[in-house]
Design a protein around this nucleic acid. Sequence first.
DNA 1: ATAATAATAGTCAATATTAGTCAAAGAATG
DNA 2: CATTCTTTGACTAATATTGACTATTATTAT
Lengths: 159, 159
Amino acid sequence: MGDEMADENISDLIERYLKQILADNEQVKIRRSEIAGLFDVVPSQINYVINTRFTIQNGYIVESKRGGGGYIRIEKVRLLDDIDVLDSLIAAIGNKLSKRDSETIVQTLYNNDLINRREASIILAAIDKDAIDLNNNDLTDIMRANIMISILNRLRYEG
Amino acid sequence: MGDEMADENISDLIERYLKQILADNEQVKIRRSEIAGLFDVVPSQINYVINTRFTIQNGYIVESKRGGGGYIRIEKVRLLDDIDVLDSLIAAIGNKLSKRDSETIVQTLYNNDLINRREASIILAAIDKDAIDLNNNDLTDIMRANIMISILNRLRYEG
DNA sequence: ATAATAATAGTCAATATTAGTCAAAGAATG
DNA sequence: CATTCTTTGACTAATATTGACTATTATTAT
């Protein structure tokens, strides 16, 4: 049928709808069930759209609240230019991260002017061995990796 | 539907109303049933708002009196110096720390100029639910407490 | 003074109102 | 066919709202 790219699935439509709003606004705040109703899908499909299309890699951060007056808010953030450092660090971490490697990473961040001394100190405190100790070396390394990745993802954008 | 977000829940509205008064005054003294009537909610919702949004961790102390002429007074507390803020926050954490309380603590650090916005968001990334998830809510809260205490202790001598 | 009553605020559990997770089924793609 | 992406829905989790019952203090009556 037709000419253009007429065959979008519903998730693509929802994505387009939200990004249209975000073209004019820094953020969009929705009620999940409302959007689901608008496109006649189950509410959890909104989560699917958000998880697959509004990630931090794409420059969006998402926060939400449940209960009465609950919402989902999608916010556009300005990604930094030299994000490849972060990408490669995250890729290098993988599943587990030793204390020694974590210190190397913090040093790399500092050398690349992605963090200052004080921020480095805060990060090191967050992954301190005693803080995240789990009586299990493997688990501790997994926890350290998770925390470090979460922080690295935060460093993708400014503000 | 973009930036403009009108749909807060009533508890948020009540919170905002009270904090608006507290912006100009050291304290606010209310009659519970009056505020409840103003927002058309049951009186006990005022307690809910106070218990969830005006805790000591957030820098408020609340006292009240029952009987004729009874009242609830919310007072902004001014902590003496940085070390006191950190000490009292650490003391308040104890063993476990919920996501909500952790956000309050970070807000308090920011309000007291102990951290800036960027440091706040790094800390929040470090204790993010997904990062420290352990498939066990209690364990997650313990982990969050440990990390937060480690960071607070670091801030003590980090100046 | 003491007791009864009125006028407050507090507690707690039930219910309501949202959003999140996860895995299975279905559809599209190569 | 195999694989990946989309759609669905049952179950879970978090937060807000409500109301019945309790506790405390002040006021009034005896």
